[in-house]
């Protein structure tokens, strides 16, 4: 291990971590928003919109992020739509993971037995009331483990960003290896930095899960 080299690489890794986290979280925010909208659309069986949403989900779940980024960054400029690498990164992540989020939330929604809807309606609640006060809170708490898994998945997907010249963690490591050939140092740092980024998410996720389950099932 060349610790001198490691020290000189550290600032680059911190930069890369900053970029990865920044783009990653913007992607997560977009994905969550999209996911909720799509899942609700599907659950309420809104006409026309439902078909669009289903199309979107299938399109983005069944193509790799790499391909989506290629398309956003290299193909769209040919028809005059030019976006910065960072915007492509956020959009790519958000759209890809939005599809996953939608499915996760939908499965949460559908796990609530229909008898609850029927009971609530027989008490005189409107369709909207049933959805907002009975179904959604339970569905969200049931979806949390899946959602956290999606967030971690999405943050790891940033490792294909090199395609659009974003210096994320993976690309920084590869780049340094290419220039200085200190493979072991660079890869060890890479693992450490991914852990720095993802362990807190993982831990926070399990705390959140416990907290919500507590609300659902009591102590």
């Amino acid at each position: 291990m060349d610790f001198e080299a490691i020290r000189s690489y550290l600032p680059l890794y911190w930069d890369a971590l900053g970029l990865t986290v920044r783009i990653g979280w913007q992607g997560v925010a977009l994905a969550l928003a999209l996911g909720v909208l799509c899942a609700v659309t599907l659950h309420l069986r809104l006409p026309v919109l439902r078909r669009l949403v289903a199309g979107y989900i299938e399109l983005f779940r069944n193509t790799p992020l790499l391909v989506q980024l290629f398309f956003l960054y290299f193909a769209l400029p040919k028809i005059g739509l030019r976006m910065s690498p960072a915007v492509c990164g956020v959009l790519g992540l958000g759209l890809l993971c939005g599809a996953y989020m939608a499915e996760t939330i939908r499965s949460g929604l559908e796990s609530i037995p229909p008898i609850q809807t029927e009971s609530a309606q027989s008490l005189g609640m409107t369709r909207m009331q049933v959805f907002c006060h009975v179904i959604l809170p339970q569905a969200v708490s049931r979806s949390v483990p899946g959602l956290v898994a999606n967030v971690i998945f999405l943050l790891k997907e940033t490792s294909v960003f090199s395609t659009v010249s974003l210096m994320d963690l993976m690309f920084t490591a590869k780049d340094l290896i290419g220039m200085y050939a200190k493979t072991m140092e660079c890869l060890t740092l890479l693992v450490v930095f991914y852990l720095i980024m993802l362990l807190p998410v993982s831990v926070l996720g399990s705390l959140l899960e416990r907290r919500l389950r507590h609300a659902e099932f009591g102590p």
Binding site: F74, K78, R82, P85, K174
Partner: peptide, 17 residues
């Protein structure tokens, strides 16, 4: 502006990135 592969770098130049 760094790329992994020649193909990507060339496309990026063509696109004016």
């Amino acid at each position: 502006q760094k790329y992994d592969a020649y193909a990507e770098a060339k496309t990026a130049l063509e696109n004016g990135n």
